[in-house]
Amino acid sequence: MSVENDLNTAANLLHVWTQEATTPEPERLDVRIDVADLLAAVKTLHDAHWGYLSAITGLDLGAEAGELEVLYHFCEGAAVVTLRVRTPRTDPSVPSLYPIIPMVTVYERELIEMFGVEVTDTPDPSRLFLPDDWPEGVYPLRKDFDIADAAREA
């Protein structure tokens, strides 16, 4: 199947939950969905055997926007479909994909510790990369985390 066909298939599968769909590059499809629809959308892709979950990216949109964005990248051949969900910066939370994709735990552990996003019902929320003595509530990939400040305090 060509990239175009793959992307069309995905667009149709995700149609019901799509808030906004864009094609920033020829082989990519970005689909904005609501956090509440995430599991249903992922399950649909998964059940249709559309690609595999390649990575989860966290984005801090900044204090002004007041939101974090979580990107779930699925790849099928050359096609990349990204599910984008937004969650408030003050109390960020996304559901765990563990019931659908069990291998997701390592990605979710990274998201939790780097962005402070709560991943509900993930089986293992323990730290994966950060040191044991890393302070609670400090999330290094948030935009307001400054390495120089942290080094001075330590």
Partner: peptide, 12 residues
């Protein structure tokens, strides 16, 4: 598993 012993914060 516990990783991160060579985590250097390169993304940041």
């Amino acid at each position: 598993v516990r990783l991160g012993y060579v985590h250097r914060g390169i993304e940041k």
